[in-house]
Structures are given as structure tokens and as C-alpha cells.
């Protein structure tokens, strides 16, 4: 092995890489937040009595879950151009990850709603709550508690999947790494540093989500 490792370019580029990690976080947070919302909407679509809504929800969920996420990013980035819709790399990646997340979260929500006994909603309605009130004050809080764990995993997944943005020209952490790589040809060094940064981001995100979850769901845990 006569390869000389050169870490200096990596150290010089470190501030830029860290700045690019903020883009990674931005993409992941937006996609996750939108995915959570659309996922809930998709769940209600699939639980609806209207056939059209059910079909729409199921189609979205099945496509999102049964095609590669990289393929989905390509569709949003290049495929939509044929219809005159030109998204920036940022929008395309966020849209694709949202599309994917919503599909997975819809299934997670289903598990969460199934975990709440049907009697709870009925009891709330009997007490005079409207359908919306029962959902807001009785059912949804319990659903959110049930899906918090899977949601944390999904968030980690989104952070890691946002690296695919590199292949759609997005200058997030991976894209920025690729940019520096093409200028210095220090592929191994740069991507090794990026791997470490991703690992740290994923771990910090996981710890933060755990810390955040503790006060949020404390009341339920105290119950015997």
C-alpha cells in the first residue's frame, strides 16, 4: 500500500462541511415534519369510507414503500421536468423524502391508532365531545405516544437518506463532500470524515429525541 493519506484538505474544509450539515438537518427536519403531517392525512384517507380517498391513500403508501427512495428523488428532480415542473435540488429532495416519509408514517399511524382501544373514543363521544375533540384530546395524544419510538427511527432514517441529495446535485453534507472530493481527489479522507459527521449527527439526534420524549410523555408513564 503506497497511498499517502492527506488529511490537511479535510481539516481545511471542515467548517464548510459542518455548514453543509446544517443543510442536511434542514432538509431532514422539513421532510420529517411534512411527512408526519401528510402521513396522518394519508392514514385518514385510508381509513375513510370514501373509495376515492382510500384508493389515493393506498396508492401513495404502496408506491412510497415499494420503490427505492433514490428512484423517488430522481422522479421529483428529473421526471417532473417533462410536465414543465422544474424543482430546485433542495425542493426536489425535500419533496421526495416527504413523499417517502409520509408513506411510512401512514403505516406507523395505523399501528398507533390500532393501539388505542375503540372504547376510549366511544367514551369520549358519550361524554359529549365532538368527533374532533375526542381525536384531539383523547385519541391523538395516545397515538403520538405509541408512535414516538418508530418516529425516532424514521427521523434517523431521513437524516441518513438525505445523503442521496448528493446524486441530485444538492450541496448538503454529502454533496459538499463530493464537491471537495472533485477538487482535491482525496475521496477516502473526505468521505471518512463525512461518515464520522453523519454518525455524530445521528447519535445526537437520537439522544435529543429521547430527552424530548421524556417530558412529553411523562404523565402517561407515571400511570401504573
Amino acid at each position: 500500500m503506497d497511498y499517502q493519506f492527506h488529511w490537511r484538505p479535510v481539516i481545511q474544509a471542515l467548517p464548510d462541511l459542518l455548514k453543509a450539515s446544517l443543510v442536511t438537518l434542514e432538509v431532514s427536519l422539513i421532510a420529517m415534519a411534512l411527512g408526519l403531517m401528510f402521513g396522518l392525512v394519508l392514514y385518514f384517507c385510508r381509513a375513510s369510507s370514501l373509495r376515492l380517498l382510500r384508493g389515493f391513500g393506498s396508492t401513495w403508501v404502496e408506491i412510497a414503500r415499494n420503490t427505492p427512495s433514490l428512484f423517488q428523488i430522481f422522479v421529483f428532480y428529473w421526471g417532473l421536468g417533462e410536465f414543465g415542473i422544474f424543482l430546485s435540488s433542495f425542493t426536489a429532495v425535500v419533496a421526495a423524502l416527504t413523499f417517502n416519509c409520509a408513506g411510512y408514517m401512514a403505516e406507523t399511524y395505523r399501528g398507533g391508532f390500532n393501539a388505542v382501544p375503540a372504547g376510549q373514543d366511544k367514551a369520549a363521544r358519550t361524554l359529549g365531545m365532538t368527533k374532533l375533540q375526542s381525536l384531539r384530546y383523547v385519541v391523538l395524544p395516545q397515538v403520538l405516544r405509541a408512535i414516538y419510538g418508530p418516529m425516532t427511527n424514521q427521523f434517523t432514517w431521513v437524516i441518513l437518506a438525505s445523503s442521496l441529495g448528493m446524486l441530485a446535485g444538492l450541496r448538503e453534507l454529502s454533496g459538499e463532500t463530493q464537491y471537495f472530493n472533485s477538487r482535491t481527489f482525496r475521496t477516502f479522507e473526505f468521505f471518512a470524515a463525512t461518515a464520522v459527521i453523519y454518525y455524530l449527527i445521528a447519535k445526537i439526534a437520537l439522544i435529543l429525541m429521547r430527552l424530548l420524549g421524556r417530558p412529553l410523555f411523562r404523565a402517561e408513564r407515571a400511570r401504573p
Binding site: 500500500m1 497511498y3 434517523t156 441518513l160 437518506a161 445523503s163 442521496l164 448528493m166 446524486l167 454529502s174 475521496t187 477516502f188 468521505f191 471518512a192 463525512t194 461518515a195 453523519y198 454518525y199 445521528a202 447519535k203
Partner: peptide, 23 residues
């Protein structure tokens, strides 16, 4: 856990460049 916490894409590029370096 390391393999689950680093994007697969980065792992692929890293391994690909590593085998080139290692010969």
C-alpha cells in the same frame, strides 16, 4: 450500530475508494 448510523451511500463510496487504496 456504526453501519446503521452512516448512510449506505457514504459506506459504498468509502469502501470503493478503500479497495482502490489498499490495492
Amino acid at each position: 450500530d456504526v453501519f446503521r448510523s452512516v448512510p449506505l451511500l457514504i459506506q459504498l463510496i468509502l469502501f470503493d475508494s478503500f479497495i482502490a487504496i489498499a490495492g
